[in-house]
Amino acid sequence: MARIQIITIIINLLFVFYISRLIIKNRLREEYAIIWSVCTLIIIVFSVWRDGLAIMSKLFGVYEPPNLVFTAFIFVILVYLLHLSVVNSKLQRNVNSLSQEIALMKEKLKDNNEEQA
C-alpha cells in the first residue's frame, strides 16, 4: 500500500471520529452527518481501490483522472452549499415569524393588563 493511501485513510478515519463526536455531543444533526459520512466513505473506497479513479475517469471520458476528482468535488460542494443556503433561508423565515408572533403576543398581554388595571 502506498504512503498516500495510508495517509488518506488515517485522515478519513479521524474525520469520521470527529463527526461522531459532534453528533454525540448534540452539536450536529444526524441528517447532516449522513452527507458527511457518505463523502468520507467515497474517499475511503478510492484510497483503498487505487485503480478506481482511472477506471472511473475512463467511464466518464475524462483524460486526466485528477480532473475528475476536482470536477466531481466542486460540483458536490456547490450542491451542498446551495442546500445549506436553502436551510438557512428557512431558518431566517422561521425566526421572522416567531419574532412577529412574540411581538403580537406581547402587545396583547399589555392590552389585557391595561384592561385589568
Partner: peptide, 15 residues
C-alpha cells in the same frame, strides 16, 4: 431507515 438507524445508534452511545 438510514436516518433513524444512525439516530438510534448515536442515541444509544450518547451519555
Amino acid at each position: 431507515m438510514i436516518k433513524v438507524t444512525i439516530a438510534m445508534f448515536f442515541t444509544f452511545i450518547r451519555k
